[in-house]
Amino acid sequence: MTATLGPDEIRERTRQYLTTSLARELGDDEDIFAAGFVNSLFAAQLVMFVEERFGITVENDELELAYFSSVNAVTDFVAAKTDRAR
């Protein structure tokens, strides 16, 4: 279950997903939107990945690029959501 995942595991699983999906290596702070690696369809897929893989719900008011722009941004977002859920 996601509640048992620490930031390192969240980061690794997110990095793995992005690296595989984008077919390129990314730095953990590399902004995938600013770099032009993704489009709005991929952004929706990334949100679905986060919800399904980490067992959280992304609320409408949380659909901010800042939360999904990099490996570290996703890690921080998921860690914060799972801390609130405990």
Rank of each mutant, 00 (worst) to 15 (best):
E51F: 07
V38K: 03
V47P: 03
E30L: 05
Y17W: 05
L65G: 15
A80W: 02
A73G: 00
T20P: 05
L46N: 12
Y17Q: 03
E59N: 08
I32G: 07
K81S: 10
Y67K: 10
L22Y: 12
F42K: 00
V58Y: 02
F33C: 14
R15I: 07
A73W: 01
V78S: 01
V78W: 00
A34C: 10
L46T: 13
L5K: 10
Q16K: 15
M48S: 14
T20M: 08
Y67N: 15
F77S: 07
M1D: 14
F54K: 05
T75V: 11
I32K: 07
T19W: 13
L22C: 12
N60V: 15
I56A: 01
T75L: 05
D61F: 06
T4L: 13
S70W: 00
E52Y: 11
A3R: 12
N72P: 02
L22N: 14
R84S: 14
D29C: 02
T19C: 13
G27E: 12
R11I: 02
G36W: 04
A80D: 09
Q45P: 03
R15M: 14
V50W: 09
V58M: 05
T20S: 11
T57Y: 04
D83H: 14
S70Q: 00
A79H: 07
V50M: 11
T2S: 14
A34V: 05
M1V: 11
R11H: 06
R11S: 13
S40V: 00
L65H: 15
G55K: 05
E30R: 02
N39R: 01
T14G: 09
F33I: 15
Q45G: 10
R84P: 04
R15T: 11
T14D: 08
I56P: 03
G55I: 09
F77N: 06
V74Y: 01
S40G: 00
L63Y: 06
V50Y: 10
A85E: 11
A73D: 00
I10T: 09
N60R: 12
S69L: 06
I56K: 02
